[in-house]
Nucleic acid binder design. Sequence first.
DNA 1: AATGAATGAGGGTTCATTCAT
DNA 2: TATGAATGAACCCTCATTCAT
Lengths: 210, 210, 210, 210
Amino acid sequence: MDQEKLSEESRSKRDAILAAARTLFVKKGYEETTIADIAREANIAVGTVYLYFRSKRDVYTGVAVNIEDMIAASFLDPQLLSLPFTQIPRALVDGIFRVSREHMNLISFLQTDMQSSEEMLQHKDSNERITAILADIFQRAIERGELAPFHTEMYSQLLCLLGDNVMYQCFAVENGEREALYHDYFVEMVERLFFGPSLREGQDRSSADS
Amino acid sequence: MDQEKLSEESRSKRDAILAAARTLFVKKGYEETTIADIAREANIAVGTVYLYFRSKRDVYTGVAVNIEDMIAASFLDPQLLSLPFTQIPRALVDGIFRVSREHMNLISFLQTDMQSSEEMLQHKDSNERITAILADIFQRAIERGELAPFHTEMYSQLLCLLGDNVMYQCFAVENGEREALYHDYFVEMVERLFFGPSLREGQDRSSADS
Amino acid sequence: MDQEKLSEESRSKRDAILAAARTLFVKKGYEETTIADIAREANIAVGTVYLYFRSKRDVYTGVAVNIEDMIAASFLDPQLLSLPFTQIPRALVDGIFRVSREHMNLISFLQTDMQSSEEMLQHKDSNERITAILADIFQRAIERGELAPFHTEMYSQLLCLLGDNVMYQCFAVENGEREALYHDYFVEMVERLFFGPSLREGQDRSSADS
Amino acid sequence: MDQEKLSEESRSKRDAILAAARTLFVKKGYEETTIADIAREANIAVGTVYLYFRSKRDVYTGVAVNIEDMIAASFLDPQLLSLPFTQIPRALVDGIFRVSREHMNLISFLQTDMQSSEEMLQHKDSNERITAILADIFQRAIERGELAPFHTEMYSQLLCLLGDNVMYQCFAVENGEREALYHDYFVEMVERLFFGPSLREGQDRSSADS
DNA sequence: AATGAATGAGGGTTCATTCAT
DNA sequence: TATGAATGAACCCTCATTCAT
């Protein structure tokens, strides 16, 4: 129990640093944030930061991975898997938008320039985790006969990349000002991809607004 | 004429700086590249850089815009517009891949952290320019009756974002090792989007390769 | 008895710290060795070091004195005093080389920068202790009529200094690669000093080796 | 000439740094002296130090080598070579003492702990330069028949080491308080080495004082 | 226009030391 | 006694920027 408490405190201090860093990175950007800033915001000493992270860059990566995991978690909603596949694309998109809206400020962390190969691996892992979850959802649909077989992994990858970038554009670049628009057309595009009809043949949905 | 020559020399020195900066930014990243490095690579003095750019960040912006323009240019291929629309999606994807492959190293640049809002605007501009070109292509197809009417701008936007990230993943993260795979499925996805059949109905296409 | 045992444990822990420090100072140098390193090597906690030493510098001093005492001890070999003086110079040199060879790594320690005057005094003490032993040996020889009277203290001092530096050069700088050479010529020089003949007169001895 | 002046200024700035560093190293010790201190003392900016030296340690080495060269220079006195050998040992010792006395504060630099191999090489070079000069002097004496042949290099080495350490002890440890004593007995010892008589046989010189 | 030596503010990082447990 | 997490002062070094030539 003593062990546990220590571990808890340890965890909470690490989290405090991450929270402080997140706040500051969002407010001032990475370069403009100093370790001293982070320590002050987290109410700890400068040196303490280095007990939990090896470098400033390490703190950054921690923040970024944190966010990516948060998004991955939104796909793990057990309700999602019990839906008929016709409702899944919309549900997925809804999930991404919800998480992104709630953490709008953090979205810019989805686009990191990854200098070190170690960092790249961390991000790649995170990306693969999400991709795998998506692919699994598609695979189940195929097995249930709701979809024709296709290269689930690659489609998951592409959709994942698209999602990342749409969130970035919608929330980080445009501050969510056109969220509804992005949401609706993202849903439409994904649904069309899975269920058709194609843009050439379909006559109904796609006509109004600017 | 003297004026002109001076201006020419001026232009060429500015370009030399941009070229040097591009090389170094790609090789070492922005933070790790110093003005001294750039000056050395461009065979000029440190001070001279400041005759053509106001700050290091200014040099960076110059380089970034340069690259994005290059990509935008690939869409302006006049041949593209004279193709029947059935061939256009593939041609577009081919164009993106070709430009990206040739400038593989520059791609990672498009994703570099844009903290300041000024830079974000620049990127937004660039993005909008490309998006507009795409939308125009789609609009023409609609006018020629090759496509049903749809929200061309938003679809262009989404496709554009997808393209950016696919290029980044394919060339910057994976070093182009699975280029063929990404290419084929990117084409397939876009074609399916425009021409169907949807994944639920189509039986044939999606079986080959690893 | 409890007192005694505590004191023993105390002694052994202090020694453990000194041993750990010695190893690390030799391997990495004073500046590069941290208190944390020492604690780890000694299998104790950082704070414990401060129960036995007031500061890092204090640990250093402890280590240095330790080494010098070891060398001083080699001169106290009782057999040495019972030898006829003709054999004593060689025996002395042998002793120095033996101790130095065994603790090759520690020798470089004798030369570490002693900036503070307090440390200089400690060194002076240590030096004087060794010098006194040497002078005593010479004094006995004079009393036994084996040597003409001379300024024993100053000669001891000079020889002592020479010894220090020869050991440093031979073992610390050259890693003992030319030990035999240094040994032979050190013996020769000291014997020549005490027994002649001078370099101007002697014809034989100095011809062999590389 | 412009070239020359620049080079001169460059030299003088480097020398200013060395002088400032020397002063401070002597006054406060290496560790306690900061680059900022040195820059202030030299009336330049911190960054400027790094235009002339790669690191703080590099400055230190510069100071040390400077001093060693100064001593080497004292051996190059052309008058020395024209003396009959009987007067050379005393002249050599006189030279060392004169230089050392003039730069008493710097003598402690003769004893550096040399961590990096690069530093060690620099010192080794310096040492070998001095040794070679000494050996050359002896060799000439042998050729002129003033000395019997002997291992000049090794004796030079040993004498050199002895000299270094005597200077260190006399001036750095004892602040020159017993300079006369050290001088006289150093001369006596060296002369006895070269010219005899040995301590066992000689009756004259070595009796008085404490 | 071109130079490049000089600047100096600023930041990441280390690590000896402390103290609550 | 023993611990080791926390502290925070201090320092080396970098490098964008300037300006006298």
